[in-house]
Design a binder for these strands. Structure first.
Lengths: 226, 226
DNA sequence: CAGCGGTGTAGACGATGTCAACATATTTCT
DNA sequence: AGAAATATGTTGACATCGTCTACACCGCTG
């Protein structure tokens, strides 16, 4: 009986005998899709993106190796799903910075920069997955991931637009200006997360002071010239 | 006779029967080490870092799969060797920018920024390998790669030091200021190279204008406040 | 000429992503 | 309610990869 074998029943979130709910929650055995994403996020945090194997994820979810293919077209698609969650979270922390400093554009700017840096350091592996070359990123593919990324970027564009109106930030194509500001943040985070700033890591005080300098630089670089 | 088999003799750089030369060029069959690096650089340019398999490189060099292990401890070590070459090249282009604008610090700054961006766009895959998470990067490992990276970074520190003395750039820890300036460049390049700026790619004019803005932002962000 | 270390080779192992074929559970149609 | 369709999960197999071990060859030094 090669089929009745393991089936750790505790691993499944209770097959839901209830008739039907409004949300089209998957049926069958449990919602594997989310279980895979959750396991992936957990494993990503603990071991990094390299450890995110399809088989490993399936193992952690208590299913067979090819089961994930019913929910993700390929390993890359699964990674894209995990990365997407990261962009959602990133957007959230950026929106939070906005909520707290809506009135003062300069404070908003600095808070957004700190939030971005905080996200990168707090979710380093996630950050690497989102912006690194861990998966193919062909245009037209992974549109959902793409949208989530644009959603996060849009919060920066909103900030730039508002700051241009209030005269804090230089005029010019808002996209270009946003990218210029974003680049400063992103470059610092990318270098740090990839351990290219290890001469700072040994001096945590200098690291945090540099982070603060970067947050300011990010604004000064695009501040309206007098 | 399972051993006499392939041995494409043309692929080897002539066994060098000459007695001995000053440089300790490897003997035996040819200098496989450099052949592997060359093939790797070529393949990297054409197909990206994912294609850099040990077996594939060995194939390209016309040797057996495990031959590379006589010259590189692991695949990561080979990748590190290839990345190292990239840092050497990057340092070269940065030094060239310096040579051309030694006197005018502002021009030097802009030229260095353009050179960095030019390198990233011209050697996109190499850039990704150098700064992405394609290989383990434990501290203490790959010291040669590490040194090459620091060598390239040092050219930026030199620029910042000179610019601080001449009053162009703000005071403060030169390392921190260098990182702040570098971050702007690096962030832009990293985003572009990883295709996260595709909304720009469709508009090459906007892309180049943004690149120019970034090159300026990189200086404005750390310019001495009046 | 013997031996020895530097170099290259074949075989094997475990691991991975993916495909095709098959089994089973849930929904939908009649 | 029963049948058919669909969604989900499983096994087996294949090609590929990095790496280990044992072995073969080469060119030098004694």
């Amino acid at each position: 009986m090669p089929f009745k074998t393991p089936r750790k029943p505790a691993a499944r979130p209770a097959p839901r005998k209830g008739r039907r709910s409004a949300a089209p929650e998957p049926y069958h055995h449990g919602n594997l899709r989310e279980a895979l994403l959750e396991a992936g996020i957990q494993l990503l945090k603990e071991q990094g993106a390299e450890a995110l194997g399809l088989r490993e994820l399936a193992r952690q979810a208590g299913v067979s190796r090819t089961a994930p293919y019913r929910h993700f077209e390929s390993r890359d698609a699964l990674l894209a799903g995990i990365a997407e969650q990261g962009f959602v979270k990133l957007r959230e922390v950026l929106l939070e910075a906005r909520r707290e400093h809506d009135a003062d554009h300069e404070a908003w700017f600095i808070a957004a920069a700190r939030a971005y840096i905080g996200f990168a350091f707090g979710y380093a592996e996630h950050f690497k997955l989102m912006f690194g070359g861990y998966m193919k990123y062909e245009p037209g593919q992974h549109t959902s991931l793409h949208d989530a990324g644009n959603g996060a970027f849009q919060t920066l564009v909103d900030l730039v637009l508002a700051s241009q109106e209030s005269g804090l930030v230089m005029q010019g194509d808002p996209i270009a200006v946003s990218i210029a500001a974003w680049s400063t943040l992103h470059g610092f985070c990318s270098l740090a997360v990839h351990k290219r700033l290890d001469f700072l890591v040994e001096n945590p005080d200098l690291l945090s002071r540099t982070a603060e300098l970067v947050a300011r630089t990010c604004l000064e670089g695009v501040r309206a010239r007098k």
